[in-house]
């Protein structure tokens, strides 16, 4: 813990006086600090409109709705999600989102956020895959996205810090890095085809570079309201969209390729403050 705090400290000092490693910050303040620190990043500065809209981010509505859902007694077992352990203890949400994926003793494997949320909704509340509460993964109207946005918001401004102490956490992160560069599909693409260089565009869209952690923290800061889709989206939705456009095989939810990729994503943003929720093009 002490070591992690030391690693995060210089970064926190760099992004402004108000910021400290473990301190919650308004997502708009996090974004404004990133913009100030990176005046030449085409990716971060690409949409003046979205930067302007950030204080009124439509994703903030989902925070309120998600909070109600989190504390409501729901499902066949009629219990709230307060018993769900996202890694910091049952019901402890502050800083939990930026310290995922992680290894969970109760299931004996590494889980990403959405996998863990669904696990709790099934095991604690008694929902099954047939219930829309867990079956519907995408869209601002889905329970999953409301809960995701509320829970993630409790980590806004905190540094990405997925644990790597357990050997399986390290193994999944390392496999995720290999997957990032693994070429395949009908167009021979890997993730680095689009995220290997700074300031490149695919059509009109400026792409984030994975090895630039200040661009990458915004890139992996989901949930985010996607202006072009008028919906709040998740990390898993971003993966599904990329994989689809890359002409790889279709990826399925709650599966370990997602977990490994997210382990690597969040590690590549390590030490940088998360924007939760973000607003993207």
């Amino acid at each position: 813990m002490f070591k992690k705090a030391l690693l995060a400290l210089p970064v926190a000092m760099a992004v402004g006086a108000a910021a400290q490693a473990g301190e919650w910050q308004d997502p708009n303040d996090v974004l404004q600090n990133l913009l100030q620190n990176n005046p030449d990043s085409k990716y971060l500065h690409q949409s003046e409109m979205n930067i302007m809209m950030m204080p009124d981010n439509p994703a903030l509505w989902l925070v309120e709705e998600g909070e109600e859902l989190f504390y409501a007694q729901r499902g066949p077992n009629n219990v709230s999600l307060e018993g769900c352990d996202f890694g910091k203890g049952p019901g402890e949400l502050e800083g939990a989102y930026v310290e995922l994926p992680r290894y969970f003793d109760d299931v004996g494997k590494v889980m990403d956020f959405e996998m863990r949320l669904v696990h709790c909704m099934k095991e604690l509340q008694g929902f099954t895959s047939d219930d829309s509460a867990v079956g519907q993964r995408h869209g601002s109207g889905s329970d999953i996205m409301k809960l995701t946005t509320y829970i993630a918001h409790q980590s806004s401004g905190m540094a990405w810090n997925p644990p790597l102490d357990h050997p399986e956490e390290q193994a999944m992160r390392d496999a995720g890095e290999v997957l990032f560069f693994r070429r395949g599909g009908a167009m021979d693409f890997n993730c680095a085809s689009c995220h290997g260089d700074a300031g490149k565009q695919i059509r009109a869209s400026v792409l984030p570079q994975m090895r630039d952690s200040q661009e990458w923290t915004k890139a992996v800061s989901w949930p985010a309201h996607r202006a072009g889709q008028d919906n709040v989206r998740s990390q898993n939705h971003r993966i599904r969209g990329c994989v689809w456009q890359m002409r790889h095989a279709g990826i399925l939810p709650d599966t370990p390729v997602n977990t490994a990729l997210i382990s690597f994503w969040n590690d590549a943003a390590r030490g940088e403050p998360a924007i939760l929720p973000d607003l993207k093009r």
């Binding site: 496999a175 290999v178 997957l179 095989a249 279709g250 399925l252 599966t255 390729v257 997602n258 490994a260």
Partner: peptide, 19 residues
């Protein structure tokens, strides 16, 4: 890491491989 990546892609039901 390379073996695990291949294993995850091809053996864990992460993709709709039969499509």
């Amino acid at each position: 890491a390379e073996e695990l990546a291949d294993y995850l892609v091809l053996e864990t039901g992460s993709y709709r491989l039969e499509q």
